[in-house]
Amino acid sequence: MTRRNRRRRVWVVLLGVAAVAVIVGVVFAVSAAQRWFHTVTAQPPGIGTTLLAPAQSKAQQALDGGRVDAASEEATRFLAAQPTAYWLTPEQNPPGTAGGTVSDLLAQARSQDAVLSIVVYGLPERDCGNHSAGGLSPDAYRSWLSEIGGALKTAPDMDKVVILEPDSLALAGECGNLDERVVQLREAVHALEGPGTWIYLDGGHSGWLSPAEMASLISAVSVDDSIRGFATNVSNYRSTADEFDYAHAVSERLGGLHAVIDTSRNGRANAGEEWCNPPGQRVGDPGGTYGDDVVDTNLWIKPPGESDGPCHGGPAAGVWWPEAAVNLTDGLRE
């Protein structure tokens, strides 16, 4: 080989090395930029947050399926358009389908520039045999959670709100299964956590357990920074003011842990101790209306129009109930 050819070969090698270095540098720069972008843009829900109004809501399904009569159509259309959490349950989103549902919801949220809020509601022996009894076996539950968490992690640049297993902690003492619940919830948190995912544990409500009792239950889960906080008043009718006071009292015992409050059906807040389809109630203030240094904001978590169970003439828990939709929105539809 001549000296000239050797020199040309050396230059080719050097240019190749330089090109590889540039490519590697770009990859690292993009990766770092993405990490920085996700870090600085991730925001928990707050005042002004708009949740997705999911196309899979029971109200929208009733409209799409032509199962709405003239008396309830206006109320059903009104509620279908409201930003509300979507409840993932194994009954309607069984293992093998839940991940696809989450992916579809994420696509809807991205296209609408909205925040996705989901309720994960499928743990073993759910609701201790009460109106919402059901859930998965322990092994199926872990697989289901992994599927949901995997789908959430595909959108690290989006903020996602996860309300994890309502009633699971507040009801544990009555059910006698606190030790099991704590382990299950820890595993659930670790399966679902990821960039931009804000997880809220069950926080009961102001008319149930004392702040000290509720704080003790939440602290037993011991998931450090993996959760954002706790959710109160889910599927209940307590006043927003009472729930703010309660959330502050619980948070004070937990070192300032944050909270969200369900205001989907507390527009009158006069149900007292009655929790199963109490008559005369109204939807509450829209999500993103209130917030402070402890309460991130209020949200519509329980979809108005879905029954609490077979009481006061209602169908099974979670079933769309046109009469409830009409009553809850009376005087509000325009």
Rank of each mutant, 00 (worst) to 15 (best):
E213Q: 14
D293M: 04
L145A: 06
Q108T: 13
E91M: 07
E187K: 07
N236P: 10
P303A: 12
A241T: 14
S216D: 14
L105I: 12
S219G: 08
S210M: 12
S132C: 08
L209Q: 05
S137C: 04
A32S: 14
Y200G: 02
V234K: 04
A18Y: 01
D64M: 06
A75C: 05
W300N: 01
F37I: 13
G309D: 12
P95K: 01
L171N: 06
A32D: 15
L145Q: 09
Y86P: 03
P138G: 05
S222A: 15
D159L: 03
G229V: 03
F28R: 13
A55Q: 15
R67E: 14
D225E: 15
P83K: 08
A85N: 07
P166W: 03
G287E: 00
R333D: 03
S251T: 11
Y141W: 13
D330P: 05
A247F: 02
L201S: 03
S132T: 08
D64W: 09
W198Q: 02
S72L: 03
V119W: 02
F37P: 05
G194S: 09
D308S: 15
P94S: 09
P156R: 09
G65A: 13
G207D: 06
G313I: 06
D242Y: 01
S210E: 10
R181Y: 00
G204N: 01
M1A: 10
L106A: 10
D104S: 14
G135C: 09
R9F: 10
S146M: 07
R238Y: 12
R4W: 14
P83R: 11
G313Y: 11
